[in-house]
Amino acid sequence: MANLSVNVAGVDFKNPVIPASGVFGYGREYEKLFPLSKLGGIATKGTTITERMGNPSPRIAECPSGMINSVGLQNPGIDAFINRELPNLLTKDTVIISNIAGSTIDECVSIAEMLDDTDVHMIELNISCPNVKKGGAAFGVHCESAEAITKAVRKATKKPLIVKLSPNVTDITEIARAVESAGANSVSLINTLLGMRIDINTGRPILKNNVGGMSGPAVFPIAVRMVWQVANAVSIPVIGIGGIDSGKAAIEMMMAGAKAVQVGAAIFTDPYAPVRIIDEMNDWLEEKGISDINEIIGSVNPW
């Protein structure tokens, strides 16, 4: 066994693989397939202050090597998360990352304050959801607003704070630097890219929301590029997300500079994807005679 454990912002992970926010719920359904303790961590579904119904269906469309979703942050609200889901998750012997997604700074601050009183391990602030009209990605596309919301949430909690970045920007390194200067302990990227599909027989968009967030293997090269750029621009740890569907893809993302990775759409294709990826990473490291995953983080040797 190679050493797969990593440390992100002071938090120890037994391995670097984390199911991404939104695809894994709170783990209950996947626990029927594998023990959650195998995972490095779990990023929970984005939580707002009160319950949200989300967007009308259809909420998903396929595209070559990927998919587009427009769930729109359906979630039961922070009280339900803290009372009904978190206590159970905290017994699972894995790092619990609570993803939060308010539509105003005040909402994010209130949620962070409430989480500060719990034993959740980390907070991931989503400033990049493309599927809601208010807030969401709007915070993540300008340095000023990204900095302001990060600062405010930073003050509201002592938990390690990850800020999740949008790829739908001109220069993602500027936003990463802005949230770093505002006190983020880590950045995770990428959230989904804005996309659209049309049913040419009806002339109607497939998604009822018209547009949605694209993810899956098709976005992998974009994610690798952005992780590489951001890892070179900031000194806080980067969590790589986007199109990871195999151990080799996870290794590639870590070579680009990610200290850990999150797995989204791949879990729809293969519900065992996160645990398979952990095994495949170990196999690859053993085959190469590398005893510690930390040796490959940021090890790309650019031309």
């Binding site: 359904e29 996947y30 119904m53 259809p58 998903i60 769930v71 359906q74 729809f268 519900p271």
Partner: peptide
């Protein structure tokens, strides 16, 4: 309904239900 996970985790397959007089989102897969 169009689906992602198929097991109730991703909330992609929402449909509107009325339960005890209240509007709720159900999920076709679960």
């Amino acid at each position: 309904e169009r689906m992602g996970c198929g097991i109730g985790a991703c909330l992609v397959c929402a449909c509107k239900l009325k339960k005890e007089g209240k509007d709720v989102m159900g999920h076709v897969c679960k």
